[in-house]
Design a binder for these strands. Structure first.
Length: 585
RNA sequence: GCGCCUGUAGCUCAACGGACAGAGCACCGGCCUUCUAAGCCGGGGGUUGCAGGUUCGAUUCCUGCCAGGCGCGCCA
């Protein structure tokens, strides 16, 4: 039983509440601002309203009524708070026991019960660069996918590629005009992007370019075999390039079907909107009014342009309906930035169709747009985009250089690595810097790309977490060398934990709540924040105490157990963020 | 003009309506003959954009300003 559950029950008993009130009380438990004040704190403000008594009075009464037991050492009132001190030895066993009993699953819980979540993320545009800005959707989405899955949901990862639209007209126009097969062969994506940018730039001074591009796309829509063959080739080349990046980052999707794959459904769906009386004609276009549903003035969702062509919004409608029919999701989440209006329109239009057609399952209400902040300094058209592959390469190279400097300065501390191991470490550390940077703030805050900020290796960074993990693994290596069990057993009753050990234990107990918060808030940052606090607690402990002391086997064993619990918790959290826990650095 | 988002330390960012607003970077001072110094300990640094309101209590909620970002039917 988690400590907080036990404490909540003790609080309920002291208040003479029935046991079913305990979970509610447990939710308001916090940590006091300073460890000297206590291990857990219960604020009495909510009770003050119910009991019509001053909070400090309630706190004093409550503190006096809480009976110390095996876990609760004492309760003291401090103003409007009841602060609880726990029995460190007993509490440490209660927290560490479950971690060591099933290390790989610590932090997980079956909240999802096998319900399906469709998660749409990454979704790069074919023939546009996969630049640093795309890392946000990819990383946040992949993180959420792992978190949902860890909590018992069945996750369908969709990479809804932007593989349809006028941009292909531009690329094909450029290809027909300047195309060079050797270049395409040599460096597919970069070359396609150059073609796109070149055509787009020319269209800014020469409007006929835009016309020709539109015409080419129209031919593609009409099934012109030559154009279709080019489209197919460009799509495959681009996807092959994206796949290299995904493999590098250990990310895989269940589907790479893009907009083109729902084209055959679009006309049928538009027809449904019309027949249901939801769509109407406006200025020659076919639209769905959504201001009423949303309760504010907003442009309608456009299904068909005045020239008769269907829109991406119509494709999104068709795609959503198709998702529901295929997966029957409990949530349909789009990890897409800066398109709040579009998704509001999309969900509202589906809501109107649901009402008109009297659907039994009101699934449009389960559709969500998980947005995130803007990456500044990264416009494709202005040519200032930084390719993700280049950032990954630079991160890896810097990581390698730093490792070489450090190992040269202190050769004894650094194990000799084979070339392959060094490659793996450099790559993993570089990725950690990038991936952690992305989740080191809440997703809605804007970020500015800056090499030196993004590629930090010290302080609150990914490499710091990996470094902490590697230190722990170093302790286990020494333990084995000394002939000790490397913290694998169940926690034994050892000496009472010292302050630094105790704070680490308490922090470990908070991991499941951090994972749950990351899930409900759709916010991987919750885990990043926790891991930094965890590593920080560990390093404070590590610096103050020696784990392995051959002269003191009891303390060594207790500390090895604590370090093992910390290492597996850190590893679980890092994996959720897509960062590789390293045994050595 | 309308909508969404954001204003917190020099910089990058935290803080379920709760105790004295916290971390990292940068700066200053300490700590490697002991398990990796990519680390630890200490220090200076703040009118939380401004003005009101709600209440026992507001960085957090509401209103109005100011500033920035993004978007606003035939690009996707």
């Amino acid at each position: 039983m988690p400590i907080t559950t036990h404490v909540a029950q003790a609080l309920a008993a002291a208040l003479e509440y029935p046991p079913e009130h305990a979970p509610g009380l447990g939710r308001s438990l916090t940590r006091p601002p300073s460890p000297a004040l206590g291990d857990l704190a219960f604020p009495c403000f909510a009770l003050a309203k119910q009991l019509r008594m001053a909070p400090p009075k309630i706190a004093a009464d409550l503190a006096a009524r809480i009976r110390p037991d095996a876990l609760i050492a004492r309760a003291v009132a401090a103003g409007p708070y009841v602060n609880l001190f726990l029995d460190r030895t007993a509490a440490a066993r209660a927290i560490l026991g479950p971690i060591l009993a099933d290390p790989a699953r610590y932090g997980s819980r079956n909240i999802g019960g096998g319900q399906v979540i469709v998660l749409d993320f990454s979704a790069p545009n074919i023939a546009k660069p996969f630049h640093f800005g795309h890392l946000r959707s990819t990383n946040i989405g992949a993180g959420l996918a792992r978190i949902f899955s860890f909590l018992g949901y069945r996750v369908v990862r969709k990479n809804y590629l932007g593989d349809w639209g006028t941009q292909f007209g531009f690329v094909i126009y450029a290809w027909q005009r300047w195309g060079d097969a050797a270049e395409l062969q040599a460096r597919a994506i970069e070359y396609l992007v150059e073609l796109y940018v070149r055509a787009y730039r020319q269209s800014e001074t020469d409007p006929t370019v835009r016309e020709q591009a539109r015409h080419l796309f129209l031919r593609l829509e009409q099934g012109d075999p030559d154009i279709a063959a080019l489209w197919q080739q460009f799509r495959e080349l681009s996807l092959a390039g994206f796949m290299k990046t995904y493999q590098r980052l250990d990310i895989a999707f269940d589907s790479y079907e893009g907009e083109a794959a729902v084209n055959h459904l679009v006309e049928g769906v538009i027809e449904r909107f019309v027949r249901a009386g939801v769509a109407e004609e406006s200025q020659g276009a076919l639209v769905v009014q959504v201001s009423g549903v949303l309760g504010r003035e907003i442009a309608p969702l456009m299904l068909r342009k005045s020239d008769g062509a269907s829109t991406y919004a119509a494709r999104d409608c068709a795609e959503a309906i198709d998702r529901w029919e295929r997966h029957g999701f409990s949530a349909n989440i789009y990890v897409v930035s800066r398109q709040e209006d579009h998704f509001a329109q999309l969900f509202a239009a589906l809501t109107r169709l649901a009402a008109a057609e009297q659907w039994e399952a009101h699934w449009p209400a389960t559709c969500e747009n998980v947005s995130f902040g803007y990456v500044r300094g990264m416009s494709t058209r202005k040519g200032e985009a930084v390719w993700l592959e280049d950032v990954l390469d630079e991160a890896r190279d810097r990581a390698r250089r730093i490792r070489e400097e450090k190992s040269a300065a202190n050769p004894r501390a650094f194990p000799t690595l084979s070339a392959a191991e060094l490659d793996h470490v450099s790559e993993s550390v570089g990725q950690a810097a990038l991936l952690y940077f992305d989740v080191s703030s809440r997703r809605l805050s804007d970020v500015t790309f800056d090499w030196d900020t993004v590629l930090q290796f010290e302080g609150n960074t990914g490499p710091y977490l990996q470094y902490s993990h590697a230190r722990m693994c170093g302790i286990f290596r020494r333990a084995v060398a000394e002939g000790l069990a490397a913290g694998s057993g169940t926690p034994q009753a050892g000496p009472e934990p010292a302050d630094e050990e105790w704070l680490l234990v308490l922090k470990l107990g908070e991991f499941p709540a951090a994972v749950a918060a990351a899930c409900t808030e759709r916010e991987p940052h919750e885990i990043a924040k926790f891991l930094h606090e965890l590593a920080s607690s560990f390093n404070a402990f590590y610096n103050k105490h020696t784990v392995i002391d051959p002269a003191d086997p009891a303390t060594s064993a207790a500390r090895l157990t604590l370090v093992r619990a910390t290492q597996v918790t850190l590893a679980n959290g890092l994996k959720l963020l897509g960062i590789r826990p390293l045994e050595t650095m």
